[in-house]
Amino acid sequence: MSPIDIVLCCVFSLTLPVGQVLFKRAALRHGSTSGPLAIRVLTNGDLVIACAWYCGTALFWFLILTRMPLVAAYPFAIAGSASVPLVSSVVFREKLSRDFAVGFGLMLLGLTLVVAPQVFR
Rank of each mutant, 00 (worst) to 15 (best):
113 L>A: 09
10 C>H: 02
121 R>C: 04
37 L>S: 15
27 A>N: 14
49 I>C: 06
41 V>L: 15
64 I>V: 11
60 F>P: 00
86 L>W: 06
29 R>C: 07
112 T>A: 15
45 G>S: 12
28 L>S: 06
42 L>G: 14
106 L>T: 04
70 L>H: 09
89 S>N: 09
47 L>S: 03
90 V>C: 07
54 Y>T: 10
73 A>I: 04
7 V>G: 05
73 A>G: 04
25 R>V: 10
29 R>E: 14
51 C>W: 02
114 V>N: 03
81 S>H: 08
119 V>M: 08
69 P>D: 10
74 Y>R: 05
44 N>E: 07
30 H>L: 14
88 S>G: 09
115 V>P: 00
15 T>V: 13
104 F>L: 09
33 T>K: 11
77 A>F: 11
56 G>V: 08
45 G>N: 14
60 F>K: 01
58 A>D: 11
103 G>S: 10
79 A>N: 01
67 R>V: 07
99 D>C: 12
23 F>M: 10
60 F>I: 02
121 R>F: 10
93 R>L: 09
97 S>D: 09
94 E>D: 13
16 L>F: 06
108 L>H: 07
99 D>A: 15
25 R>N: 09
73 A>E: 02
94 E>C: 07
14 L>I: 02
5 D>P: 05
1 M>C: 03
9 C>E: 01
69 P>C: 10
85 P>Y: 01
84 V>P: 01
42 L>M: 15
105 G>V: 06
97 S>Y: 10
114 V>L: 14
12 F>R: 02
27 A>G: 09
116 A>G: 03
102 V>P: 04
52 A>N: 07
49 I>M: 11
81 S>T: 07
120 F>L: 13
100 F>P: 01
101 A>G: 08
117 P>V: 11
59 L>T: 03
88 S>P: 04
61 W>N: 03
20 Q>P: 01
62 F>C: 06
92 F>I: 04
58 A>R: 11
33 T>D: 11
85 P>K: 02
110 G>P: 03
74 Y>A: 05
92 F>H: 05
63 L>I: 11
